[in-house]
Design a protein around this nucleic acid. Structure first.
Lengths: 99, 99
DNA sequence: CTTTAAATTAGGTATTATCCTAATTAGGAT
DNA sequence: ATCCTAATTAGGATAATACCTAATTTAAAG
């Protein structure tokens, strides 16, 4: 959860995710759309990969990156839980909301 | 959005939010529940405040912190959008899902 | 006004992040 | 094997984080 939110805290990384949401892209395609050195983009991609937000596979001489939605859903679930009303479990009655 | 995710990326700060979700607490109450120096906790609280995740008000000699749910909902909305299917607007027909 | 309790700010240090250029690896084509 | 393109890793400079102790602010109580 740490790496996940940390990865999402940088605008370039959020933009990369938005780009990949449309469809998979190669490292070069991604790097070309930013005004920074390619190795810097690779760094961001590695961080996204460590956070589980993207997956990479080799395609010939290129590298194809795709977004991993389930990681985003994990963060989503965490935040949902934070906004949820406090609930107490009641035996044989399921969940009852409180407050 | 930057500060928001950055604030959420530290376990102590997520724990503080979880604590405040139950109800408002003073700075001292919060600091007492961690194994770190009080000023360090104050630092985390300032960061949470900068991110809009908590609000503080003075109560006599104490400081009462409360969680600001709408900031969390903002992050939630951002992630929801990331997981949402791509949609195209169609005149007089509302939204239609695609792909 | 002085003291006390609550909390923050100031200042310092160690670790981590972000960016760069240069060097290296990997696969495909000549 | 050699070369070329795609991409990563290595190494280094600078900025930002996270923690600590010491000093300062703020409000209430004596």
């Amino acid at each position: 959860m740490n790496l996940l939110f940390k990865a999402l805290s940088h605008p370039v990384r959020r933009k990369i995710i938005a780009m990949l949401r449309v469809g998979p892209l190669t490292s070069g395609d991604i790097a070309a759309r930013f005004d920074m050195a390619w190795p810097t983009v690779t760094g961001h991609l590695n961080l996204l990969k460590d956070a589980g937000l993207v997956e990479a596979e080799r395609s010939g001489t290129s590298m194809r990156y795709r977004v991993n939605i389930s990681a985003i859903e994990e963060a989503l679930a965490f935040l949902m839980d934070m906004t949820a009303k406090r609930a107490v479990e009641v035996e044989d009655q399921g969940l009852r909301e409180e407050q």
